[in-house]
């Protein structure tokens, strides 16, 4: 399997040499396999956002290196925009970055900066808007007239329009209604499948992670606490609780069911799978 991004022994220290010195990441090493969805979870302040802004070179690590398909992203500092168009980063609450007259123009900002031609930009904007569930009508409106959820979609579309190979999203669904969450996340999965992209999603929702991620990276105090497949991680409930994290609600339900001897499986992480399990029990 090819790794889209490799993180090698990365440390980040904020405010070096001041009384506010803070080691946000302590020599972490990991990799993000191409074409997979990696979910990053971790307690507040564990360094998730810091890791995210390292991946596209917005932040330079104090030590260590980051490889994008085997190439050090800092090899040519002059060509950083190239790296940023290949690794799209969507910040927490990205809706506050919208600025242009129309949603369409705003989404086109990224592709324009890369220097694509009119036709290509138009194409990409249409496609990106489609992935994010924005209608033709909404594209013509001012971004400031949209609802919060629609703004979020516009902002994500603005990054997708650059057609990045890797997309890093910092809590893309935070503060949205359940249906909005589903639509945005499944839109991203669609994009991933179409272009063979790699997704890295930071989330506080164990449900979303269980449903969409292939792998999980658990962070704690600037270190990688656990990493592995969804099953490997959620099986270790105790360790997750130690990192002040949680299991998906449905998994907790099945653990309780097992305690009461009603069901034997505890590897239930999504509602879809739970439904099948319950149907099995009822059928018995």
């Amino acid at each position: 399997m090819i790794n889209a991004i490799e993180v090698k022994n990365i440390s980040v220290i904020y405010g070096e040499g001041t009384p506010f010195r803070k080691a946000a990441l302590n020599g972490i090493t990991t990799a993000f396999p191409k074409g997979e969805i990696t979910g990053i979870i971790g307690h507040t302040g564990s360094g998730k956002s810091t890791l995210a802004s390292l991946l596209n070179g917005l932040l330079k690590a104090t030590s260590g290196e980051i490889l994008l398909f085997g190439e050090n992203i800092w090899a040519k500092p002059k060509e950083m925009t190239k790296i940023r168009s290949r690794v799209g980063l969507v910040f927490q609450y990205p809706e506050y970055q919208l600025f242009d007259e129309t949603v369409e123009a705003d989404i086109a900002f990224g592709p324009k900066n890369i220097g694509l031609d009119e036709e290509e930009i138009k194409n990409r904007v249409r496609l990106a808007a489609e992935f994010c569930g924005l209608s033709e009508k909404e594209l013509k409106r001012s971004p400031f007239e949209l609802s919060g959820g629609q703004k979020r979609r516009a902002a994500i579309a603005g990054v997708l329009a650059m057609r990045p190979e890797v997309i890093v999203l910092d809590e893309p669904a935070a503060g949205l209604d359940p249906q909005g969450r589903e639509e945005i996340l499944s839109g991203l999965v669609e994009y991933k499948n179409k272009y063979g992209a790699t997704l890295i999603i930071i989330s506080h929702s164990m449900e979303d992670i269980a449903k969409y991620a292939d792998r999980i990276l658990v962070m704690k105090d600037g270190e990688i606490y656990m990493q592995g497949s969804v099953e490997e991680i959620f099986v270790q409930a105790e360790r997750l609780f130690d990192a002040k994290l949680d299991l998906p609600q449905i998994t907790k339900l099945f653990i309780e069911l097992k305690k009461r001897n009603l069901c034997q499986s505890t590897d239930v992480y999504t509602v879809g799978y739970a439904k099948k399990e319950i149907e099995k029990i009822i059928a018995k």
């Binding site: 910040f91 990205p94 506050y96 970055q97 900002f109």
Partner: peptide, 16 residues
């Protein structure tokens, strides 16, 4: 802080 965030966000969209 807000300005820094916005600068980062636009840089992530390859703003120069």
């Amino acid at each position: 802080e807000e300005t820094n965030k916005i600068i980062s966000a636009q840089k992530a969209r390859c703003a120069d």
